[in-house]
Design a protein around this nucleic acid. Structure first.
Lengths: 202, 202
DNA sequence: TTATAATGTGAGTAAATACTCACTTACAAA
DNA sequence: TTTGTAAGTGAGTATTTACTCACATTATAA
């Protein structure tokens, strides 16, 4: 049995464990992600966990990978919209992102968590890598919009991309602090309308 | 000796403890903020900590208060600039905020931390309260700028305020993830220039 | 059938952590 | 001087947590 973090197509338990971890984070936070809690959520013994992962850290790594895959799927979904304008695709990406977070409340918890920021170089790297891919896509969409005459030419790509991600972040954080009490998507729509004014040529 | 969380002017140890806590968070994160670590940083025994605070939670509350005070001081500093334009004051507030974070690396760690988001209703409330005051100030400055004809009239106040805070957030998070490896203030300046384009009437 | 590997578990263990307690020392006011 | 109180400590304790180990069961393939 290979347990070194590499994917093994047939290992159903691995997926169950990772999904259980995400559920626990969503419900009770990263601090409550103990081996005991995971084992109970899956319905197996704690010792059995270690038949599928070498450490709790590896489990965490699995959940980060899973989240990253979901986010990158959104990039693909937008890439496919070949007949839509750059601005329409940016909007779609914005809403897809919010919707994905809405369906996985563990995401902001995990991304903001200290586990992701301190030590754990592999986790940090994965996150930075995903952010990098995301930024690149955003910047290329913005450039495309500028060429098409939809987005003002004096808008700097990297700054606009940061603004895009910043809006998602602050909204997500407010949402998390409020106990997920308002509609991410509705509030996001309002924010987007304003951002579009910023981008558009007058 | 009163230890119920209320300020006591003469208690120097309280301040020392809170400052030590902030230093530990900056250096090693909230997870490393143990009673043992605090005691060692201050240079007193663990038991002595409990002469000044009833619990570790109270110490954390003290640090959150300290940070909040600093942020609100920036609001005051800007309120005093009576002869500057609304846009100039917004810029000043933006840079003051970044500078304050730059000098206190523990701030993003603490604000993003699970301790602030899960359970601990009193901490959450303090944070939300500070954010509320901040938003209100931002919105009033934006309105002022609109009246003066400096900021475009079709910009929605609350969305623009969220964008302002979102930029600080995303920049701060990138900075934290990068191990504080770039200049917050320099990168912030770039972002600000772009944001000003968004706000300004053409 | 039988050998081998995978999957499973209960009962640990060592380390970390927030907090307590009995007791001592310093020090200011009566 | 006495007395009361704040400030201090070393040596605990109960609990939590990641992880291990010896051993049992199940599935697979020769």
């Amino acid at each position: 049995m290979i347990k070194n973090g590499s994917r093994l197509s047939g290992d159903i338990r691995r997926d169950q464990i990772v999904e259980a971890a995400l559920r626990i984070i969503a419900k009770r936070g990263v601090k409550s992600l103990t081996t005991a809690a995971i084992a109970e959520e899956v319905g197996i013994s704690e010792a059995n966990l270690y038949r599928h992962f070498n450490s709790k850290d590896e489990i965490l790594q699995g959940t980060v990978e899973k989240i990253g895959e979901g986010l990158l799927r959104n990039l693909d979904a937008v890439s496919v919209m070949t007949d839509a304008s750059a601005l329409a695709r940016l909007k779609r990406l914005f809403m897809l992102h919010l919707d994905y977070i809405d369906r996985n409340e563990g995401i902001p918890r995990l991304i903001f968590s200290e586990e992701m920021h301190i030590g754990k170089e592999n986790l940090k790297e994965k996150l930075l890598n995903t952010i990098g891919l995301y930024s690149a896509k955003l910047e290329s969409l913005i450039k495309e919009g500028q060429k098409a005459g939809l987005i003002r030419k004096d808008m700097e790509h990297s700054s606009a991309a940061l603004m895009f991600m910043g809006m998602i972040q602050i909204l997500t954080m407010k949402w998390s602090l409020s106990g997920f009490s308002f509609s991410l998507v509705d509030e996001g729509m309002k924010l987007w309308r304003n951002f579009e004014k910023c981008l558009s040529v007058k």
